[in-house]
């Protein structure tokens, strides 16, 4: 497969996943706010979401929900993520199934139809996005042959999901301690994990059980460990490498992270603290993304980015400037 095509598939998938996670996070947080006992006012209400999604522009005059959902200036708003997913899909229309393209295209056209005057505009955008992303994954699952096309689409999906779940777990860190408890509910709901939590732990939600489920579950499909295991399988499928071996730095970094999650998670949280632990997971995930781009996407003509962060930034700028 063309390197550029692989990159477009990967980013198409990352962007729709990003849109989906953000949409569900906003919806869940909104829902929890309605029940909040103390009145968190103004910026404190939504500030934590900006922190965990690592977005935010101090100069923006838009309110936080607008900024996160429908802003044109925020490259990572739900709306812009859907746009970018569709633009990446458009570049590889000939590779994905017709139905996948139609779903993304229809979502974008439908979101543009949501009137600015609609009082529940943001709620509707989030709901449509989350729903369409489920449909998209369903179509992907039943229409894509299990070739490299599938592998790169899945790779984007699981990397983005691992990153977003790890960030969502960090939500309580940004709240005053007496408000942290409701955030655990938000966390679970944003990851569609409430039912699984009740099923497994029953009763009251506590921080340790909730974060354990979202970080280390071997069976819950949005947990970081589950996602990283999938990334490990996919990378080895692409290069045809045996389990436990590695052929490139992306595979090595993934194997190392998987071992951390498999064998030393809880101890590390004990010694580092949850927030610092989650930070270190995100660095590892960035590293994996960088190594994937080095191995599979880089064209000889491009100057190689100097670091994982530089890669993510340059990619974002390139894509964002395209739509301006």
């Amino acid at each position: 497969m063309l390197s550029r095509v692989a990159e477009n598939l990967y980013w198409m998938s990352r962007y729709i996943e990003r849109a989906d996670n953000l949409a569900r996070l906003v919806t869940a947080h909104q829902n929890e706010l309605l029940d909040a006992t103390s009145n968190l006012t103004g910026e404190h209400e939504w500030h934590p979401l900006l922190e965990v999604t690592a977005t935010g522009d101090e100069n923006s005059s838009e309110d936080v929900v607008t900024y996160m959902v429908s802003s044109k200036d925020n490259p990572d708003s739900v709306l812009n993520c859907v746009f970018m997913a569709r633009e990446n899909a458009r570049a590889v229309r000939d590779q994905i199934s017709e139905e996948m393209w139609i779903e993304l295209n229809a979502l974008w056209l439908d979101l543009k139809q949501v009137s600015e005057a609609d009082i529940d505009r943001h709620g509707r955008i989030c709901e449509m996005t989350a729903r369409s992303s489920l449909v998209f994954r369903g179509i992907e699952n039943i229409s894509l042959p299990r070739t490299d096309v599938w592998a790169f689409v899945q790779l984007g999906e699981y990397i983005e999901r691992a990153d977003k779940t790890s960030r969502i777990v960090d939500l309580p860190h940004f709240l005053p301690s007496h408000e942290a408890a409701p955030a655990w509910n938000t966390m679970l709901r944003a990851c569609s994990a409430s039912a699984e939590y009740r099923h497994r732990f029953g009763g009251e939600v506590d921080a340790t059980s909730a974060s354990t489920l979202l970080l280390f579950s071997n069976t819950f499909p949005r947990s970081v460990r589950f996602c990283v295991r999938r990334i490990d399988e996919l990378l080895r499928q692409i290069s045809d490498t045996d389990e436990g071996d590695y052929l490139n730095e992306a595979e090595r970094a993934t194997g190392a992270l998987l071992a951390r999650l498999n064998f030393s998670g809880v101890e590390e949280i004990g010694s580092l603290g949850l927030h610092e632990y989650v930070d270190s997971l995100q660095l590892d995930l960035n590293r994996i993304g960088y190594e994937i781009s080095q191995r599979y996407f880089l064209l000889r003509r491009d100057a190689p980015p100097t670091s994982a962060e530089a890669y993510v930034n340059s990619r974002m700028q390139a894509q964002f400037s395209m739509q301006q």
Binding site: L2, S3, A6, I238, L299
Partner: peptide, 22 residues
């Protein structure tokens, strides 16, 4: 067939190649 952009191709020894994941 593949749809390519200029940056997907390169010329070496008077032959044209495309960058693929393999």
């Amino acid at each position: 067939i593949e749809i390519v952009e200029g940056r997907d191709l390169l010329v070496e020894n008077d032959r044209v190649y495309m960058h693929t994941t393999r």
